[in-house]
Design a protein around this nucleic acid. Structure first.
Length: 400
DNA sequence: CGGATTTGACCTGCGC
DNA sequence: GCGCAGGTCAAATCCG
């Protein structure tokens, strides 16, 4: 076992070195662009990337319409192109089909005539037949240990809520396989029954999979701090991947939210975090989590009263390295795909954003409240941005 | 000592 | 029916 871990680690190191050497040049150019700190203004949102879940065999990401405006998907302040994208295989069979898509040719995007208008219209849909969704993403940092870059960006405007805004509503998927979520009311409080009892219960239980949200994060750290407390309850080797998948549950009593964390086999820098379910409790934010909430920070004064905001999983590095340069912090890009039900519909995060539902309605305003606290945030954000966001208070803050 | 993590066993669903 | 892979359980272990 230990031997295997060592081998895996060695492989990882080798991969990283490869990455370092091959991307070094691109990264330099990237940094120059990043220094400009181009913030992409969010625009309208009415479309959403849609994972076609009508079949477990589908490994396709559909676009809810042909003219997807990327900002309507991510609705985020984007300071650099995305080098990677992530589409979770809803069948949970294999992430690799999506991982295979990760490294993208982002030249086309980079050469877009208007760097500040980040639209999917300009993005190559390299496979029209399957409606594969390609997002050019930013370059990775390459320094081991200090390269906890979050690729995810929070939506700049909750109004358009990144991953949201579908014309379709989520429906319970009773036909989907895997995952049977406990009733949040039962949650972890439920006394464990005997195995036959559990078995019977599982049999009788209608399986309704919660929508999922997947984050793609560039980090050396597996366990990204998203502000919630998680307890690891399992780990499994993933087929065709040297990296295991870890399973976590929210430790809050009665909250049945789960998350899976795994590292891309193709790019060991990439950590895929998939959330499932909705928190039934307030966001347990602490000072240290200020850094996670980039949405209002980047919100350019846009209203923060709409339905969605969420906590992006962040490497702990960011939560502890308070002097992380702003540029590097926001150079990172986001890839977040809302998961749909197996019937092909997809979630409107505005109303039910898995794992973040509570936050959506609260954090969208509450996050700004935390910005009033200039404590850690001061170390992270430029004063200009802070000043844009410190004017609102929320009920949640008042509670504290 | 209590909570968190590890890890092998077990369960379930799916494809062949 | 069998094998495989994903997901979960729970006892053992670790750790602060």
């Amino acid at each position: 076992m230990e031997k295997k871990i060592e081998e895996d680690h060695h492989q990882q190191q080798q991969k990283k070195e490869q990455i370092n050497s091959t991307k070094n040049t691109e990264t330099k150019i990237q940094h120059q662009e990043e220094e400009q700190q181009q913030i992409f203004q969010a625009t309208s949102s009415s479309q959403m990337a849609n994972l076609d879940m009508s079949s477990d065999h589908h490994h396709q990401l559909e676009l809810a319409g042909n003219n997807i405006n990327l900002s309507s998907i991510f609705d985020t302040a984007i300071s650099s192109p995305f080098p990677y994208s992530y589409f979770e295989d809803h069948s949970s069979n294999n992430l690799n089909p999506f991982i295979d898509l990760l490294p993208q040719d982002h030249h086309q995007f980079a050469s877009s005539s208007n760097p500040s208008s980040f639209s999917l219209d300009a993005l190559p849909l390299q496979n029209n037949d399957t409606n594969l969704f390609y997002l050019p993403l930013s370059q990775p940092s390459t320094t081991k240990g200090a390269s906890s870059e979050v690729m995810n960006k929070e939506p700049a405007s909750p109004n358009s809520t990144s991953v949201s805004s579908s014309s379709k509503e989520v429906v319970n998927d009773n036909t989907d396989k895997d995952v049977t979520l406990k009733d949040p009311e039962e949650g972890e409080q439920e006394p464990k029954g005997t195995k036959p009892q559990l078995k019977a219960k599982k049999k009788n239980q209608k399986k309704a999979r919660e929508a999922r949200v997947a984050f793609l994060t560039r980090s050396d750290i597996d366990n990204l701090d998203d502000g919630y407390r998680w307890r690891k309850y399992g780990q499994k080797a993933v087929k065709n991947s040297p990296y295991p998948r870890s399973y976590y549950r929210c430790t809050t009593v009665g909250c049945g939210v789960k998350k899976r964390v795994e590292r891309s086999s193709d790019d060991p820098y990439i950590v895929m975090t998939t959330y499932e379910g909705q928190h039934t409790h307030p966001f347990p934010m602490t000072r240290g989590h200020l850094a996670m909430l980039t949405s209002p920070i980047l919100d350019h004064g846009a209203t923060t009263t709409s339905s969605s905001s969420f906590a992006i999983p962040q490497p702990r590095y960011f939560l502890t390295q308070h002097h992380q340069p702003y540029s590097s912090m926001y150079n990172n890009s986001l890839s977040m795909i809302n998961q749909s039900s197996s019937d092909g519909t997809f979630v409107n995060p505005g109303s039910s954003f898995p794992g973040f539902d509570y936050d959506m309605s609260q954090a969208s305003t509450s996050t700004t409240s935390f910005i009033r606290d200039h404590g850690l945030l001061q170390d992270i954000l430029p004063s200009q941005i802070r000043s844009d966001t410190i004017n609102t208070r929320t009920n949640e803050e008042d509670k504290k």
